[in-house]
Design a protein around this nucleic acid. Structure first.
Ligand SMILES: [Zn+2]
Ligand SMILES: [Zn+2]
Ligand SMILES: [Zn+2]
Ligand SMILES: [Zn+2]
Lengths: 134, 134
DNA sequence: CTTGACCCTAGACTTAACTCCAGGGATAGG
DNA sequence: CCTATCCCTGGAGTTAAGTCTAGGGTCAAG
C-alpha cells in the first residue's frame, strides 16, 4: 500500500502521514526502488491507533509513549498505561472545571443584558467587564 | 504612569502591553519627550477590561469588537453586545460537550484497566485504542 | 559623571499539529 | 514516447498570544 491509499483509508492527508513519520510515530515498512513509502496492514492499524488516541485528547507526544508501551506490551505493566490515561483524565477534568466556571460567569452577566435595540449605555455585559472591583 | 507600572498593576508583562498596543487594543495617552509611553487611569481601566474579557474566554480579536462597542456605547445597541456574548457562550458549550464526550470515553476504558504491575498484554486501554472496529 | 533602573524598536522565536509549496522523480496506461 | 497520476524532499507558512533578544536611549539619584 502506498501513502495515498493509507491516508485515504484513514481520512487524513498524505502530509499528515509524513508528519507522523517525522515525529517517529509511524514508520513505513519499506520503500520501493523509486523511493515510494510502502505500508503494511500493521501500519494501517497503527495509524488508526494514533487517530483514536488523538480523538481521546492525547497529544502526539503522549501517543508516542502509548505506542512505546504497546509495542512492548509483554514487558510493560498495566500501571504505566493507566497512569498516562489518568493524567490525561485529570487534564480534561481541569479544563472542564475551568470552562464550566467561565460558562457560568458568562451566562450570568449575559442573562442580565436585555439584548434590545436601545443604546448599550447601561449594558450589563459591558458593565461587568468594566467594573471597578474584581 | 509608565508602561512598567501599568503592567505590574495588572499583573502582566510589559511585552504584553506593547503587544496589545500592536493589536490596537490599548493605545497610550501619549509619549514623553524621550519616547516613553504614558498611560492614564483610563488606560488602566481599559487594560483591566481586556484582561477580564480574556478571562471569560474572549480572544483578542473579539475583545477588539467589544471595545469598539464600549467606546461608542451611546450609539450601539445592547443586541450587538449580547450577540457577541452568546456566540462565545455557544463556543464554550460546544467545547464542554466535546470535552465531556472525551472524558466519558476515556474514563470508561480506563476504569476497566486493572492498573497493576502485571504485563499489559490484555490492557483494556491499549485494547480499546487498538480495536478492529470503530 | 556614572550607575542602575527603566524604556525604546524591529524582528525572531515559541507551541502543536499540521498544511502548503517548489521543483522535481516514478509509474502505469495507451 | 507521452501523459496523468502518483510520489519524493526540504523548507516555509499557519494560528494565537505572547515572549525574548540585540542593541541602544532616557532618566533620576548620588
Ligand atoms: Zn440593554
Ligand atoms: Zn446589554
Ligand atoms: Zn491490567
Ligand atoms: Zn491496563
Amino acid at each position: 500500500m502506498q501513502i495515498g491509499e493509507l491516508a485515504s483509508k484513514c481520512g487524513v492527508r498524505i502530509d499528515t502521514v509524513r508528519y507522523y513519520e517525522k515525529q517517529k510515530l509511524l514508520i513505513p515498512s519499506g520503500r520501493t526502488e523509486g523511493g515510494y513509502r510502502i505500508y503494511s496492514g500493521v501500519a494501517l492499524r497503527e495509524l488508526r491507533f494514533i487517530l483514536r488516541a488523538k480523538s481521546l485528547g492525547f497529544t502526539l507526544k503522549e501517543i508516542q509513549e502509548l505506542l512505546t508501551l504497546k509495542i512492548d506490551r509483554e514487558n510493560q505493566p498495566c500501571s504505566s498505561v493507566k497512569e498516562l490515561a489518568e493524567t490525561k483524565i485529570k487534564d480534561i477534568e481541569e479544563k472542564l472545571a475551568e470552562l464550566g466556571r467561565i460558562h457560568q460567569a458568562l451566562t450570568g452577566i449575559t442573562e442580565a443584558c436585555c439584548g434590545g435595540e436601545e443604546p448599550a449605555t447601561a449594558c450589563s455585559i459591558l458593565d461587568a467587564l468594566d467594573k471597578e472591583d474584581s
